[in-house]
């Protein structure tokens, strides 16, 4: 083999001998003139390294400090006018139909449809309505709150935080949409049950059999889900639904306990106030958690 070329000699002298092709390394082992030139190059490189000061990492603080004072005008932030904000709110709210689990709609609308069919077909529709409308409606509306808090579709995810519509607004839109749809459906079934001949119930009293406990269940579920986790929210919802059942059934726990529970878990001022407070607390926590550090 010929002697090594200049590039190979330079690389070998600059501590890159191992990067040379095997044939060149083998030649170097057997060729004294080439080895001598490599050693000369290595000595030269070492001398240059000693003579050349090592580049210092520049002090960027010192470099930029004089310029930091002269801040440019702020880049204008996009604003949303009232009309567009309304349209945007409506569009975001309606879009939540696609963002919640499809199973929610199947279960809740199926459940209400089954209830409506039972009310229509059973001769004693009044008894069906008074026995089942409350528990079923409370359960289905509370289930809606659980679906709103599904972590896989959470609008507070980090990638959704840098948007024009803040995550908490999306969360509230979803809660409003889902609850609105379910409460309207439950109301429609209640009105239908009351309108049937021989029902013996006014629409108002049938709606009152579930509205307060359902809203309290929603408040407790969302609060638990946002405060701790969706599982905690689900547990709160289950407890609330059980309490609403106990409140209407003295035979389950006795009159004393039943009346105490009924003071909260029936359609009354206490239930509605607690529902409003727990929903407000959940919304506040949702707003704070969208600002919470991740990781």
């Amino acid at each position: 083999m010929d002697h090594l070329d200049e590039e190979a000699l330079t690389r070998a002298g600059a501590r890159e001998r191992d990067a040379l092709p095997a044939a060149q390394r083998a030649h170097l082992d057997s060729c004294a003139p080439c080895r001598s030139r490599v050693e000369g190059n290595a000595r030269l490189a070492a001398a240059l390294r000693r003579a050349e000061p090592r580049p210092a990492v520049p002090s960027f603080d010192a470099l930029v400090a004089p310029r930091l004072g002269a801040a440019p005008d702020p880049v204008p932030v996009p604003t949303v006018r009232f009309g567009r904000a309304l349209r945007l709110t409506l569009a975001v709210t309606l879009r939540q139909a696609r963002l919640v689990p499809r199973l929610l709609w199947l279960v809740t609308l199926g459940g209400f449809a089954a209830l409506a069919v039972a009310v229509l077909l059973v001769p004693q529709s009044g008894e069906v309505a008074s026995a089942y409308l409350g528990p079923v409606s409370v359960a289905l509306v509370t289930l809606g709150a659980v679906a709103v808090c599904d972590p896989r579709r959470d609008p507070r995810q980090e990638s959704m935080r840098a948007m024009l519509v803040p995550p908490v607004a999306v969360w509230l839109a979803r809660l409003t949409f889902v609850l609105g749809a379910l409460v309207l459906t439950a109301t429609a079934v209640s009105v239908l049950a009351a309108a049937l001949p021989g029902s013996g119930h006014a629409a108002g009293s049938l709606i009152g059999s579930w509205l307060g406990p359902a809203l309290l269940g929603v408040g407790l579920t969302t609060f638990g889900a946002v405060w701790r986790s969706p599982a905690v929210g689900l547990a709160f919802g289950a407890v609330s639904w059980t309490m609403s059942l106990v409140a209407t059934r003295d035979d389950l726990v006795g009159t004393t306990v039943g009346s105490v529970v009924a003071a909260v878990w029936t359609h009354n001022g206490v239930a509605l106030t607690l529902a409003a407070l727990t929903l407000a607390a959940a919304a506040r926590l949702a707003a704070r958690s969208a600002e919470r550090p991740i990781g």
């Binding site: 996009p78 949303v80 567009r84 945007l88 569009a91 975001v92 879009r95 696609r98 963002l99 689990p101 499809r102 896989r152 579709r153 995810q157 980090e158 990638s159 959704m160 948007m163 024009l164 519509v165 999306v170 991740i294 990781g295």
Partner: peptide, 25 residues
Amino acid sequence: LPERPELYPHLTVREFLDYTALLNG
């Protein structure tokens, strides 16, 4: 783009980007 972007798995790519555009106003 965060370190671990969590995208809505049940949406299609087009649906997700359309929704993102909506949230951008």
